[in-house]
Each structure stands twice: as structure tokens, then as C-alpha cells.
Design a protein around this nucleic acid. Structure first.
Length: 291
DNA sequence: CTCGTGGCCTGATCGC
DNA sequence: TGCGATCAGGCCACGA
């Protein structure tokens, strides 16, 4: 389950292996991997053949490659998507293969099909600032335009973001997972950052103080930076980096997946609760529910 | 506009 | 051994 640091690792791999290449041909083995492409698999393949890849850009968990055709190849890894280089044999979960001019092929693998590839038109960013990491370009795919800047984006205005959080009545965890407010935060790092900032996940977003939000943002940035320094983390083995190597690494998690283990601060057992079709992990002593 | 729910997906795991 | 139920969760469509 790649989150922002893992996607950034993959973006760097895409930058190395795909940027500057011309795509000679495209094989679509399963068109469900083109969920976000508005058009047929044939349309996807025909429009991609012969184009040259110009850059690899990322905002939150969306990645895209501007092409010399004027469009962009949009990549989302979903839960189990992988980019793999130079596969000689096609395996069960290989969904799309790009054959390049004079360089090893690049494939999109995805067991669970939550991810996708798509071709999309580019449009200017709303604020006239660079669209994301990896390029100073001011263009963003139309289907990514509604995604907010991510936590690590230097163009994020913390004060404005905190005002938006505080205008919501939903749980604070819902607010930080909302990709239209801030992007790149998934369930793992949400629980980790809430634990670090000592905030209960169900606290109404409008009852968290600005100072607490600053702590929360800082915790998110810390935990993601550490993960990025280690080259990406993931809780299962589905995430694989661009060379097919597992990106799993032993970043120490203090909340997520730690059910029953002692809290690193106070030794109280970490609790897991079902929440919005997923789970929330927290320390019942350090993270008190507001009442 | 905001919010809550359920669908999309497959494979590992569990109880019977 | 096999079968059905459950769970994992990012994103999106939909209805209130």
C-alpha cells in the first residue's frame, strides 16, 4: 500500500528509466488497468505509440509523465500497483507493457486493480505554481487538478490549510485523509502522525486548535521524510520499487499495526478500532477522545 | 457545499 | 479439502 514516500521512490525510478525514451509500442493485457482512461484500450495504445516521455511529476499519490504529444501519461499505483523494468516474461498481474526505443521495457503490474494508467490532457495549475515534485512545469492533468498539494510540497500554505481543516465538522482523521484539502496522507501515516501529535482520530476537525494542527503537520512531514530517506516503506510485500525490489523497510511504527503492544510513550496497550471501512490505531491514554 | 456510505478489486486468512 | 465470509484501503460516485 504505497503512500507518498513510496510513490516518490517510484517516481524517481520512472524518471530514470522512462524519461527521454520514445515509446515504440504498447500492450494492454487487462483493460481494467485503464480505469481512469477515457477511451478504449486501443485508443490508449495508439495515442501512446511513438511519443517521447519528457518528465516524471508527482503530486500526492498521483504521478504523471508529460509527453511530446501534449498529453500526459497519468499513473496511480492504488493499493498494489508496481512499475517494473525489463521483465522478460509476462506474469499474472502484468497489466500494461511499454516497449521503448533502445531501452528496457517498462511494465505496470497491479494485483488488485485499484491503480491505473491513463492518457489525459494537461491544463494550467490554479495558482500558477509548479504542479508537483519532479518538474518546474505549470501544467497538471485535468483528472489530477482537484487533488490538493501534498504535505511535502513547499507551495503549501499551512495557515490557509489549517483554516480549511477547522471549517470542517468531520473527524480530524477524515480531514487529513481528504485529498482535496491536502494530499499524500494514507491510513498508515495518518495514524502515526495523530499518535505523535497526541490527537484522537475522531476529534471533530473544528475542535482541534491551530497549534495542534501545526504539530500534526509537522509530525506528518517528519514521518514521511524518514520513510523517504529509507527509500520508501510499506506494510505488505505488494509494493515493489521500479526495479522490482521490495520497498519494505523497517521504519518503526508507533501506532499503525501495533495493536496490543505497549505505547512507546506510556506503555498503555495500543488499541485498534474499526472506522469508516478501515482501522484506526491509537493509544487510549495519550490520545484521549474529546467529550 | 458538506458529509456519510458503498463500490471497485484480489488474495490471504479464518471458521466451519 | 473446500467453501464462504471477512479484511485490507485510495479514490470516486451518489444521495441526503
Amino acid at each position: 500500500m504505497p503512500e507518498l514516500p513510496e510513490v516518490e521512490v517510484v517516481r524517481r525510478g520512472v524518471e530514470r528509466h522512462l524519461v527521454g525514451s520514445r515509446i515504440d509500442s504498447v500492450e494492454v493485457f487487462d483493460q481494467r488497468a485503464l480505469k481512469r482512461h477515457r477511451g478504449s484500450a486501443n485508443d490508449f495504445a495508439v495515442r501512446l505509440a511513438g511519443v517521447t516521455v519528457q518528465a516524471a511529476v508527482r503530486r500526492g499519490k498521483f504521478m504523471w509523465c508529460p509527453l511530446d504529444s501534449g498529453d500526459a501519461l497519468v499513473i496511480h499505483l492504488g493499493m498494489s500497483g508496481q512499475i517494473r523494468v525489463a521483465d522478460s516474461v509476462t506474469t499474472k498481474h502484468e497489466r500494461v507493457r511499454l516497449t521503448l526505443d533502445g531501452r528496457p521495457s517498462v511494465s505496470f503490474h497491479d494485483q488488485r486493480l485499484f491503480g491505473s494508467l491513463a492518457l489525459d490532457a494537461l491544463q494550467p495549475t490554479n495558482d500558477g505554481l509548479p504542479a508537483g515534485w519532479g518538474s518546474t512545469g505549470l501544467l497538471i492533468p485535468s483528472q489530477v487538478a482537484h487533488i490538493a498539494r501534498d504535505v511535502l510540497d513547499p507551495a503549501v500554505d499551512d495557515s490557509a490549510l489549517i483554516r480549511r481543516f477547522r471549517s470542517r465538522t468531520v473527524a480530524v482523521k477524515t480531514a487529513i485523509l481528504n485529498q482535496e484539502l491536502v494530499s499524500g496522507v494514507g491510513n498508515i501515516y495518518a495514524d502515526e502522525a495523530l499518535w505523535r501529535a497526541r490527537i484522537h482520530y475522531a476529534t471533530p476537525a473544528d475542535r482541534v486548535s491551530p497549534a495542534k494542527y501545526r504539530e500534526l503537520l509537522s509530525a506528518l512531514r517528519d514521518v514521511m521524510s524518514v520513510a523517504l530517506d529509507h527509500g520508501g516503506t510499506s506494510f505488505d510485500s505488494l509494493y515493489v520499487n521500479v526495479n522490482g525490489e521490495s520497498g519494505y523497510f523497517d521504519v518503526s511504527l508507533d501506532a499503525y499495526g501495533q495493536t496490543g503492544k505497549p505505547c512507546a510513550r506510556c506503555a498503555t496497550a495500543i488499541v485498534r478500532e474499526p472506522w469508516q471501512n478501515r482501522s484506526s490505531h491509537f493509544c487510549p491514554r495519550c490520545q484521549r477522545r474529546l467529550r
